[in-house]
């Protein structure tokens, strides 16, 4: 058995393996800690945190689709103060990195949450400029390059830690947005957020979600996500955290070959509470069996 090094570095932050969680699918880690040893994950990316508590959208917020699901939670969260007081101390009991996902309706709100968290004990920030659920929020910033660049450069001023910007796939050319956020000061990018989707109940003749539309995620979206990670990897020179339909270690390896340094498990957590750890263990096994000493040997190997 050869020794393999599963660790990866993202903007100077070392993760023991590339596996993290997709924001919003893993809570603050607390709920899943009953099933999963969080110390086995490279990082926990927590559910979106805003400066003040958000109530979120009306229910129904969840609908299943073929090989995936829709959600329109609307970023319900108890706010930054609650996060600092409760979730950080909880997560610090584990040997894993903390990535705090932050959200806002306006540039001022984004800056406010970044400022509140500027001295908090977290390892990285992930800026959500792409959630399709919040009116006047995410969608506007993440789909227009100039606005994306602006919000990143403003938030950057309050961020003492590496800043990952999470990209929405609901654009014509994701590489344009990736270049814009890097120009604005993003240290890394994560992608993809959910694809905007819809389901209709044909008996009730109305949308299944109260919000009518919602974010489409799950195994069904994986080819779109792999393609976008590949394209963004060719377009910008910052680390990528790849996500979108990762349910198995094979999926994760695809993302790494497409150019991702980190990989996030999202909706698969709902289908299998052990998904994150199984992905991490599978990557290590694959490295051993293929005599890969470091993931850099296969990262972005697709021309």
């Amino acid at each position: 058995m050869s020794n393999v090094n599963t660790a990866v570095k993202i903007c100077g932050v070392e993760m023991k393996n590339p596996v993290t969680t997709a924001s919003g699918t893993f809570g603050s880690g607390r709920e899943f800690s009953e099933f999963v040893d969080l110390s086995k994950l490279g990082a926990v990316t927590v559910k979106g945190v805003a400066a003040e508590p958000w109530k979120g959208n009306n229910a129904p917020r969840i609908a299943e689709t073929y090989g995936g699901m829709l959600n329109s939670v609307g970023l319900q969260n108890p706010g930054a103060d609650y996060f600092i007081e409760n979730d950080i101390p909880f997560l610090r009991q584990f040997d894993t990195k903390i990535i705090v996902n932050i959200c806002g309706h306006t540039i001022e709100e984004y800056c406010a949450v970044a400022e509140k968290l500027s001295d908090a004990d977290v390892d990285m920030f992930e800026l959500n400029i792409s959630c399709p659920n919040v009116k006047e929020g995410g969608i506007t910033f993440g789909t227009v390059p100039a606005m994306a660049e602006k919000v990143v450069s403003e938030v950057r001023k309050y961020c003492k830690k590496p800043l990952i910007v999470k990209l929405t796939p609901n654009v014509t050319d994701i590489t344009e947005i990736a270049k814009a956020v890097v120009a604005g000061g993003a240290d890394a990018v994560s992608l993809i957020n959910t694809l905007l989707g819809m389901r209709i109940d044909i008996n009730k003749r109305q949308p299944v979600l109260a919000n009518k539309v919602g974010g489409f995620s799950g195994p069904a979206i994986k080819p779109v996500a792999v393609r976008m990670v590949y394209q963004v990897g060719k377009a910008v020179d910052v680390p990528i955290i790849g996500m979108g339909g990762i349910a198995t270690w094979e999926d994760a390896i695809e993302f790494i070959m497409a150019g991702a340094t980190g990989v996030a498990v999202g909706s698969a957590n709902f289908a299998n509470p052990f998904a994150t750890v199984e992905v991490a263990e599978g990557i290590e096994r694959y490295m051993r069996e293929n005599n890969i000493k470091d993931l850099s040997e296969i990262r972005g190997i697709i021309d």
Binding site: T25, G27, F32, N269
Partner: peptide
Amino acid sequence: EERMACGIGACVGCAI
């Protein structure tokens, strides 16, 4: 009851 994804409080789907 409400439509839910995780059942353990993580997804915040089943709001009331």
